[in-house]
Amino acid sequence: MKPLQSSHRHSEPFHHHSQPFHRHSREGGNPAHNRWNWIPAFAGMTKRVVLAMMIILAAPLAAQDQLPPAPLAYKQLDDPAQEAKAQALMETLRCLKCQSQSIADSDAPMAGDMRHQVRTRIAAGEDPEAIRAWLVERYGDYVSYAPQNKPIMWPLFAAPLVILLLAAILLRGRFRRSDTKESGE
């Protein structure tokens, strides 16, 4: 088999967009983007990331994102109803700097900035779905964990029906046969 092109993945952490661990470096080996490490194979990954971090920390450019988090990144809205709305929305927005995490449970500064955006807009009375649409307009469907109503997602919604239908077809004949036989006995 042909090996993969190295450009395919970030085998080399410096390649570009080093932001993930830079931005995270305040949290260090932060669980935030290391959700995956509990599978042993991923220990290797982290080691590489960590080695990369060591090199970066040793470099003169050791400066990291030193700013405090955005005002509403770690502060709830005063109105519990609004906060609940914001929380529900944040749980379904993807943290762009993490692996499989919503912005509601990430320590990445960018996730904090996104939470700030969401809370600010909710406090201003904006509708949660409008905020989602605002983000989708900028980052595409990727940013939303809630599947959007678009043709490309329809097969996903049809899947449970297809499965049930398939099961019904496979099983129907079976029971009917046995039932008729039993009633015939």
């Binding site: 088999m1 090996p3 993969l4 395919h8 993945r9 970030h10 085998s11 952490p13 967009h17 993930p20 983007h33 995956w36 599978i39 194979a41 991923f42 290797g44 990954m45 982290t46 590489r48 990331v49 762009l96 700097k97 993490c98 692996q99 499989s100």
Partner: peptide, 21 residues
Amino acid sequence: LVRSGILTSVHAFAVDPERGS
């Protein structure tokens, strides 16, 4: 799926194509 890193989102460092293959 886990080892090949095929599903890891944007920033996957774990990827080892040889292992995946």
